[in-house]
């Protein structure tokens, strides 16, 4: 008796669903406009082009006024929420090879900056004595859209993005460690961070950074992860064309106390004269 054809079939093998790491622009995860991808440790990662950088700046600009107008308390809550969500996704980061204590340090860093949101104005602002019947008050204001060339580590990325956004700036980050950065983007997308406040591009910083540096609608540039002195100089020169604020602390150890400098680098001071005595 012939065997039933059914019995000859093997148990179906399940095909694994592989993940493509995409960009994070304006709160969504598009592929690169150029259609390019590159391989990082066997994973397909979108390779951002200059037009992706342009789109990210448009998204960051659109999000900036509302984000800056949110109360400091609200911004602090949102950044704290990011810390909560990283905590919940610990396993995802460690699976990508991020050491457990680095995840912990990144969470602590987020909480630390969340706490600064409603205190930075009191530290950097002032009531100034003037020779006249006026109250003279200086208060910090966000710079606007910040281009960030971010370090590959989770702690490094958090240490450059969190201080910029907590004061009301929006960020376009060129991330060197794509899987970790995109996983952080997935955290941001579920943390009440409004779309466009943080935009993450994966790819080669040397290709996209010059477009951010010369972009008229970018107000500040953080060159933390630019180790190539020649490129850094070139970017600084391009940034000078539109008088961008440039921060270039050098990449290195992020585990120490960061201080307030990463926040104050992208703050401007507004001084108001208010008549008194009426």
């Amino acid at each position: 008796m012939p065997k039933s054809p059914k019995a000859a079939l093997k148990e179906p093998t399940r095909l694994s669903v592989r993940k493509t790491y995409k960009l994070y622009i304006g709160g969504s995860f598009p592929r690169s406009e150029s259609g390019r991808t590159y391989l990082v440790d066997g994973d397909n990662v979108a390779l951002a082009s200059r037009k992706d950088a342009r789109d990210a700046v448009v998204a960051a600009r659109a999000a900036q006024p509302k984000w800056a107008a949110a109360t400091a308390y609200n911004r602090g809550q949102v950044v704290y929420r990011i810390a909560e969500m990283v905590e919940a996704r610990r396993a995802e980061f460690t699976a990508l090879g991020v050491p457990a204590d680095e995840v912990t340090a990144a969470i602590d860093r987020l909480v630390w900056y969340a706490g600064w949101s409603d205190k930075i104005a009191q530290v950097t602002g002032s009531a100034n004595p003037v020779a006249g019947p006026y109250f003279n008050l200086s208060s910090p204001e966000p710079t606007g859209v910040i281009g960030v060339i971010a370090p590959p580590s989770l702690l490094g990325l958090v240490s450059v993005v969190a201080p910029a956004i907590v004061t009301g700036n929006t960020v376009v980050a060129l991330a060197a460690g794509p899987q970790v950065a995109v996983t952080l983007a997935e955290v941001l997308a579920t943390s009440d961070v409004p779309g466009g406040v943080v935009n993450i591009l994966t790819g080669h910083a040397a290709e996209t950074a010059p477009w951010l540096a010369s972009h008229d609608d970018v107000n500040g540039l953080d060159l933390t992860a630019v180790d190539d002195a020649e490129l850094a100089t070139e970017l600084e020169r391009a940034a000078a064309g539109t008088l961008k604020r440039v921060r270039r602390p050098g990449s290195g150890d992020f585990t120490g106390d960061p201080g307030t400098a990463p926040m104050t680098a992208f703050l401007e001071t507004k001084t108001v004269w208010h008549p008194k005595g009426f």
Partner: peptide
């Protein structure tokens, strides 16, 4: 040769 911004 570089991107312009609405501020200008």
């Amino acid at each position: 040769g570089h991107y312009a911004g609405p501020d200008y």
